[in-house]
Structures are given as C-alpha cells and as structure tokens.
Amino acid sequence: MILTAKFRIVSWNLLHTIGAGAAQVCELIAQTQPDLMLMQEVGEAMEALPSRLGGRYARIALPGRHHGLAAWSPHNFTALEGGLDLQPGLIVRRVCQLLECKGFNVANVHLSHGQWLNRRQLRRIAAQMPERAAILGDCNMVGAPFLPGFIDVGARIATHRMSGVVSLRLDRCFLRGLECLQATVLPRGVSDHHPLLVDLR
C-alpha cells in the first residue's frame, strides 16, 4: 500500500520507569490519534498497551538493559526481529527498531551521546532504508546531522532540558521520499523529553 493520505507519527522518550507509563502514553494517543506511536526508554510494563488500546505493539530491549524501543499502531505493521545493531558506545550498546508500514519504512532510534558516533549510527541506519523512509526518535544530537538524502523536518525548538537547565533539540525526524505536512513539539508531561508529532504524506 502506498502512502497517499496524511500519516501521523508521535515519538516520545518516556524516561525509563520513572517517567511516562502506560496511562500517560494512552492519554497522549487519545489526544493526538497517531497512526504510529514510537517510544524510547520503554520498560516491560508497556506490554499492557495492546490490552488497553488494541492495535499492534512491538518492543526490543537495548542489549543488557531493561529498557528499549517500542512502537504501537492501530494499523498493522511489520517489525524487523531484533532490530538493527548499531556501532556501540562506551557504555551502552545500541540498536534501532525498523518498521514497515503503509508503503514506507520507519526507524525508531535512541542514539549514543557521542556527536561523531551518533552521526555514524545515523548513516548506518540510512543505508538500510528504502527510497521512502522516516527516521525518528531521541538522536542525542546537537547541530546538523550530515545525512545526505534526508531532510531534517523536526520542529526547530528544544525537546529536552539537560539537567533542568540547558535546552536542546535532541528529538528529530529525518525524511526521504516523503512530505512533511506538520511538525510540532507537545508538552512533556512527566518525562524529561517533549513528544515530537509529525504529519507525513
């Protein structure tokens, strides 16, 4: 199926087990009505999401960690089992969640903090993506992505406040072969990241 109508994606770093839980995610989904909800720093408790909302849910944990990446949608999608292994950081090994839905592919990411490393991880992901693709999530990236072929369409305002003081635009959306109709940042609630909402066509 080729994407011709508006397709809404919301991406949110939940802040492990001390941030947003299933109740807050369900509330955000009810408010925004996304076609795809992407989450980072997701624990096992979020497995309850399908029983509350129905739909399709898939989660992968970061290697050696209790949290990871997850996606929910009221529509069917295909998730690559185990995701895509990325270049490891000094402490945390990283993976990317790859999804196929509505005729294009989506990468759900939580990249390393190193500013050279996260750009290398981003290029590795881009190399695995088809012509129509979206890469969204917590990129931990400051400044230009240096990602040929993709356009940075995320809202140009801060999505995270480091140590409660320094505001940074860490949550991004990169597109190839798709049109961005809208990109905005939503109230962060109990997380330390604001959700990112994008409407695509």
Rank of each mutant, 00 (worst) to 15 (best):
A30N: 05
Q121T: 11
L197T: 01
M37E: 04
L14C: 05
V153L: 06
G43R: 03
D138W: 05
S163D: 14
G83W: 07
L36R: 08
V165G: 05
D138R: 10
H16P: 08
Q115H: 05
A133E: 06
G68N: 10
I135H: 04
R172T: 05
K6T: 15
R124G: 05
T184F: 01
H113K: 07
E100F: 00
H160L: 12
R52K: 07
A71Q: 12
T4I: 09
M37T: 13
R156A: 15
H110Y: 04
C180Y: 02
A134Y: 08
T17Y: 06
A107T: 02
D35R: 07
P63N: 10
E179Y: 14
V166Y: 08
G164T: 06
Q128T: 14
F150T: 12
H16W: 05
R124S: 04
Q33I: 01
A20V: 15
A126N: 04
G149F: 08
M37S: 11
A107L: 06
A126L: 04
P50V: 05
P148S: 02
R123F: 00
N76W: 03
R65M: 12
L80F: 01
E81V: 07
L117P: 06
R120W: 01
A5Q: 15
H66G: 15
R161W: 04
H75W: 13
S73P: 11
R123G: 01
D152M: 07
L147T: 10
G149N: 15
A79W: 00
D85Y: 00
L80K: 11
L178K: 13
I157M: 11
L14H: 02
Q182R: 11
A48R: 11
V109Q: 05
P63W: 06
